[in-house]
Computed example of a mutant assay.
Amino acid sequence: MEYRFVGRSGLMVSEIAYGNWITHGSQIEADAARACVRAALDAGITTFDTADMYADTRAESVLGEALHGERRQGLEILTKVYFPTGPGRNDRGLSRKHVLESIDGSLRRLRTDYVDIYQAHRFDKFTPLEETMEAFADVVRAGKALYIGVSEWTAEQIHAAAALARELRLPLISSQPQYNAIWRVPESAVMPAGDEEGLGLFAWSPMAQGVLTGKYVPGQQRPAGARGADPANDMFMGHLLKDELLERVMLLKPLAAEAGLTLAQLAIAWVLHNPSVSAAIVGASRPEQIVENVAASGQKLDEELVRRIDEALAPVIVKDPALTESYDQRP
């Protein structure tokens, strides 16, 4: 495993991070989740990403239990706040009330005194940014988080937050957008903004929800048990499972073979090839997936191979910066 700094901060993370969106507390049982976390630790992963709303807060609890007893100083734990965690109108968003109450709930579930990076899961247009940043500053001053990050914020929102962070002397160090060889949305605006403000990028979905692993074959039924086989996931994956896109993914197979990599490893190595990226966040439902993914760490792709990947995927690459995710969750 290789390690990288998060932006211009002094914090180092494993360049492959383990994320438990969808899996822990929902898709797989607790024993399997613990086995995956154990495999991640054994493979050198020290960075773990979760969120309070994953599996209705259960994902944080499962991760906290799986990491319990590990040397806390040897881990980097990231969690997020914004989406609903209860029925009340204040159980969501980035108000001072929700931020300060949510960090305590996350720490309790994660069985730790602090998180390394506390992230705003989305931008809250219903709360003044000053209120949100001041609440985050109080979380840091209370020792409940060491650093602050954002997820799926636009370039303009990142610049505005960074300006306030400087005034408050708040360590805003990271941005977490979706990023992979198909979804290039962050490249034109979000990445340059992050680079300018000194933020490191945590890329979620580096394998495009598993599509870039080659498990979904054009014209064939989706494999049983796979994420894409569940109709409930079509809102996240439907656009990725069209035959035109899957046919383009099949063109990557010989490129991966030439590089001595699996398709999954090629997808992760492609993300890590970008110098703006601090870590690629991978999930897993089986320990052997972790072992395969970690083998992508340290793999260097030459520019000709990167060009050929771009050429193979060109017709299905998504770049429009207007697609940076936005949610209107509060009334």
Rank of each mutant, 00 (worst) to 15 (best):
V217M: 07
V217F: 00
V217A: 05
P218H: 06
P218E: 10
G219K: 07
G219W: 00
G219E: 12
G219C: 09
Q220F: 04
Q220I: 02
Q221L: 15
R222T: 11
R222A: 09
P223M: 07
P223C: 07
P223E: 01
P223R: 09
A224K: 14
A224I: 08
G225P: 09
G225Q: 08
G225V: 00
G225L: 08
A226R: 04
A226K: 02
A226P: 00
R227V: 02
A229W: 08
A229L: 03
A229T: 07
A229C: 08
A229M: 06
D230M: 07
D230F: 07
P231A: 06
P231E: 14
A232T: 09
N233L: 05
N233T: 14
N233Q: 05
N233M: 10
D234E: 15
D234H: 10
D234C: 08
F236C: 01
F236V: 05
F236M: 12
M237F: 08
G238Y: 12
G238I: 14
H239A: 14
H239T: 13
H239S: 14
H239G: 06
H239C: 02
H239M: 11
L240P: 01
K242V: 13
K242D: 10
K242R: 15
D243I: 12
D243Q: 13
E244W: 12
E244C: 04
L245A: 09
L245E: 01
L246Y: 11
L246F: 12
L246E: 13
L246T: 03
E247D: 10
R248S: 14
R248P: 04
V249M: 06
M250W: 11
M250Y: 05
M250E: 15
M250V: 14
L251A: 14
L251E: 15
L251M: 14
L252I: 03
L252V: 04
L252C: 03
K253S: 09
P254A: 04
P254C: 05
A256S: 03
A256E: 05
A257V: 05
A257M: 01
E258A: 03
A259L: 11
A259G: 04
G260H: 05
G260R: 12
L261K: 09
T262H: 00
T262W: 00
T262D: 01
L263I: 00
A264N: 05
A264P: 02
A264K: 02
Q265D: 08
Q265L: 06
Q265I: 10
Q265S: 05
L266P: 01
L266K: 06
L266C: 03
L266H: 04
A267R: 06
A267Y: 13
I268W: 07
A269S: 13
W270L: 11
W270K: 09
V271C: 15
V271A: 12
L272W: 14
L272G: 10
H273G: 13
H273S: 15
N274I: 10
N274Q: 15
N274W: 10
N274R: 15
N274E: 13
